[in-house]
Design a protein around this nucleic acid. Structure first.
Length: 291
DNA sequence: CGTTACCTGAAA
DNA sequence: TTTCAGGTAACG
């Protein structure tokens, strides 16, 4: 469910609530042991018990709790995971898979229908993360950084955006939305973007992610923040899950196709299949315009 | 590279 | 009953 804006929304909510709290215990519900990826809940519990949470971070779609033991609890929510910050007396939520008991009679609950989400305990953040591309809202996400990830690649630009090794944090919603804003067809080969298109895509990625954060994330189905509230970004999407609805810009019917196994939404008029431009043509144009 | 598996519930 | 789902790792 959650992409960068949804995870960032959760991070911002949890940060003031969790910093300074002491962990009293950690437990995993029966049948959900796999979320620890082979580690024993008793082992994690023994290590985090008594630790104080000193920071709440995010990298891509990963959320991290730094402990005063210098270890990190690293959470990935995958498709349907969510976190709930509750009083211990608060009614159990259905599909609770793990619970971090805190001082002050508080709990951080990991709730996940599909059991795809993961929790790790590591000494260094990198130990819990796969290869991730740049943070798209940070200063090191430049047009050049984006192009370094896309150049030479023949895959559809949509698939390239979903590859976390290229750019961290983009998922299916924001990939479709960014491509719409950049006027790029989702099946355009990633490495074929021309300079102007690279800049447009770079700006569009930042814009849609910032807008997503500003609206507290997108709640299409399962996503809710740590208080159980929905985001508002679903009211602002231009193409995502708007199949057959009229495009806001040109009124053409939004189309749904499958790219790299993922549902993909785009406007056939605003995001046309690009005309193939031969190398000689662009060279000639540059010569003629004196660029 | 594209496809499949991992899970479970909601929607078609 | 079948299909679909905001993600990723492991296949072939």
């Amino acid at each position: 469910m959650p992409e960068l804006p949804e995870v960032e929304t959760i991070r911002r909510q949890l940060e003031p609530l969790l910093i300074g709290r002491t962990i009293h215990s950690f437990r995993v519900m029966p049948g959900a042991e796999r979320l620890l990826r082979g580690r024993a809940a008793t082992d994690i519990d023994a290590q985090v018990r008594g630790c104080i949470i000193t920071a709440v971070g995010r990298r891509g779609k990963y959320l991290s709790l730094r402990l005063d033991s210098d270890q990190l609890i690293v959470v990935h929510l995958r498709m349907t995971g969510s976190l709930r910050y509750r009083d211990a007396e608060h009614a159990d939520e259905q599909f609770t898979r793990a619970v971090v008991r805190l001082d002050g009679n508080r709990e951080l609950r990991f709730v996940d229908v599909r059991k795809f989400g993961t929790i790790d305990l590591v000494e260094r953040l990198e130990d819990a993360l796969p290869t991730l591309g740049p943070e798209p809202l940070s200063d090191d996400f430049t047009v050049d950084a984006l192009w370094n990830a896309l150049r030479g690649r023949l895959v559809a630009v949509k698939s390239a955006l979903l590859d976390q090794a290229n750019v961290a944090g983009i998922g299916n919603i924001y990939a479709d939305e960014a491509l719409f804003l950049a006027h790029l067809h989702p099946e355009c080969p990633a490495g074929s973007l021309r300079p102007r298109e690279r800049s447009a895509l770079h700006a569009a990625i930042r814009q849609v992610l910032e807008q997503g954060v500003a609206h507290g994330g997108a709640s299409f189905r399962d996503y809710t923040d740590s208080a159980g509230a929905a985001g508002a970004q679903q009211y602002y999407v231009r193409v995502f899950r708007r199949t057959d609805e009229p495009c806001d810009v040109c009124a053409a019917a939004i189309r749904r196709i499958v790219v790299g196994g993922r549902a993909t939404h785009f406007c056939p008029t605003c995001q046309p299949v690009r005309q193939r431009t031969r190398q000689v043509t662009s060279k000639r144009r540059r010569r003629e315009t004196g660029a």
